[in-house]
Nucleic acid binder design. Sequence first.
DNA 1: TATGAATGAGGTTTCATTCAT
DNA 2: CATGAATGAAACCTCATTCAT
Lengths: 225, 225, 225, 225
Amino acid sequence: MSEKTINTADAARTGGPGRTNDPDGVRRNILDVALREFADKGYSGARVDEIAAKTATSKRMIYYYFKDKEGLFVAVLEEAYAGIRRIEQTLDLEGLAPADALRRLTEFTFDYQNANPDFVRLVMVENIHNATHLEHSERIQGLNVSVIETLEAVYRRGVAEGTFREGIDVIDLHMTISALSFFNVSNRATFSRIFKRDMATPEALARRRAVVADTVVSFALSPSR
Amino acid sequence: MSEKTINTADAARTGGPGRTNDPDGVRRNILDVALREFADKGYSGARVDEIAAKTATSKRMIYYYFKDKEGLFVAVLEEAYAGIRRIEQTLDLEGLAPADALRRLTEFTFDYQNANPDFVRLVMVENIHNATHLEHSERIQGLNVSVIETLEAVYRRGVAEGTFREGIDVIDLHMTISALSFFNVSNRATFSRIFKRDMATPEALARRRAVVADTVVSFALSPSR
Amino acid sequence: MSEKTINTADAARTGGPGRTNDPDGVRRNILDVALREFADKGYSGARVDEIAAKTATSKRMIYYYFKDKEGLFVAVLEEAYAGIRRIEQTLDLEGLAPADALRRLTEFTFDYQNANPDFVRLVMVENIHNATHLEHSERIQGLNVSVIETLEAVYRRGVAEGTFREGIDVIDLHMTISALSFFNVSNRATFSRIFKRDMATPEALARRRAVVADTVVSFALSPSR
Amino acid sequence: MSEKTINTADAARTGGPGRTNDPDGVRRNILDVALREFADKGYSGARVDEIAAKTATSKRMIYYYFKDKEGLFVAVLEEAYAGIRRIEQTLDLEGLAPADALRRLTEFTFDYQNANPDFVRLVMVENIHNATHLEHSERIQGLNVSVIETLEAVYRRGVAEGTFREGIDVIDLHMTISALSFFNVSNRATFSRIFKRDMATPEALARRRAVVADTVVSFALSPSR
DNA sequence: TATGAATGAGGTTTCATTCAT
DNA sequence: CATGAATGAAACCTCATTCAT
């Protein structure tokens, strides 16, 4: 509960916490802890004091680097979005057949979100707050074009080939992928409680992952096939 | 901001707010207001003072009827779940062909959640809090069996008929329906901000509703068809 | 230093501090203490914590009654201005010859400000803050007309009689009276330190009071006399 | 808000800000900025950080040259007093008739204070703090004898001539001059707000200046005249 | 039952100042 | 000398909750 979290990398570099000369490390450390706290308790529920306590630095440094609680939240949000987009771009879909590429992209999204529940929960929190922070962040606005471009390229190839049916809105498709991946994390608590089903076991995840991928692909496939 | 919310029904019944001796009306009124506040600001973000201020009663009554903030939240949650399940049961799916019934059920879910964003947001809030409140509510646990039974009946008929393919887990199917309906409300703020698309216009809703229904049905249909 | 200040009146009425049912007494008590603190340390220098400590109530109540530090300051300012104007109106100048009335009014002002250094210092503090609080207080705006009216009546009588010369701007006259009275309190610390003269002894006050009155009256007198 | 203030003279001398080796310039620059900040916000209201930010140097230098916030304030105060006294001594009153000399001295005081509101406000601030800083500064104590000597010389000449009446305390006279000059700046904010009169226009200043001079001179004049 | 007053614990933020490079 | 990073103490303010009438 009161464990301090230090990036091992930083600790190694500087010889431990305390007066370090690694401002970036300090920033990172704060962001890491804050992500977890915000994701865990929501914006208002998260306590600056507690974030500070779990950090290798002091509360004062949070204000030094991020101005206030809101500034910290925005920074956390930016990092989180940057994270998924960064990895997304390492996906190499061009060598795959369109249907396989679509499946691969869907699986990636599903896996990423399940592996990063804090990201998902942070987005939930931001939605509860009507995306006001996101609105003010120019950085995030720019980040998200790439997904659509990637998906669009795959879809076009599929249509050209005759694999995919025409008339699908790519943003719609992305929405379906996101929705099915997101829900598995975002609503896990209520859903599994109500339907008495553990959604986080490796088996459950594998099964659901397949269902999601099937759903997406079968929606895109041309009916003639 | 400072408007008091009174159910007109109650007001009529009791001759107006103020010295009312309509305990149920008071309760309802508090729950209505609290739903909106919790859905709007989250659990920690909602303020007991503000809920009281928007109520036709006083803060004292909140504590009288619901013990504390948490008790109020649980009551709100119970009401919210009861609401959707109550309406769900008025759906008459037995007269429809399985595929139509499935489509109808999907559309109903989509419509209900889009018409009741506060319900959706409340569920988000509860998920952020790991469904701890739901856990303590026996009332909610019992409420949700019916959906699955309804869906199961439809699915069986479809399989028997040959319309639906075998091997689908009904809970999985429900999850897909929920996910696609839920996301449209839960992630509206971030999604529409990022992809610059208003998801709440009647046209957008109608389009998405169709896509969602298609997705669900095409997933269930037997491939031979 | 850490003595609590309670209006003896309130204490008598309610049987002491603590859970009293005398909201007005609580308010008054806070205002009394706050006046002294703000006058003593300036706006930023005054500490809400310290004000609270010297009060019969708690810090929380300050915020309850006055919203925030600024609200408290404004309320203190309003009270202070109301105080002097209230007493000013009990002056009965109409029975006096114009020159005597002018002298009397001057002496009153001098006496009041010397007897209420906290009022003077509070006005200094407000001036350092460019009268921003005063600007927002409608209550104060209305309070100050009476002085000018009183002074104007005296001046007119004097001019009609031939005692006072014509052409004096009454606001100018008020300003002279104020300046000479105010300075004796406002600049006492620096002035007496620099010129090594105690300005607060009864004798010093009496002497200065006479000089001030002479100065004002001789300025208003018609030169022919 | 974030403008840096550099004495152009210094900048020229040292080849610009930054790596300057002009300790006096740095000191001056800090004092200039600090004067404005203290005069503007009061002692507690002024922020070391903000002073530093508006300076051509860094916060470190403030502590290096002035030890702490209080040391800085004292230095600013000393400079401010030195300023007025320095100029005062350039006045050449000996060639004027006593009444003219008195008028001239009064006008000078009035003009100086109106031209240097920061000086006036700084003195207000010091008075709020009961002149504790001034007390510790030997430098200031010595500065202020000269005014009195100058005034005394004028007064004596006037009495000898028969122009001025006897029995006036010169320090009293100085006090009257100061009070009337000071008030116009110190209480400008509240006074002009209350009486809805702009006291800072050239016309208003000219008129008031004349009234002040008249008041002072007519007080000193021998009544026989 | 209804209302304003009261409370204590704890939340966010700021400040003057010092350190390390 | 110059700079950004760091610090601890304390400042302002808010919250859920309870009391008295």
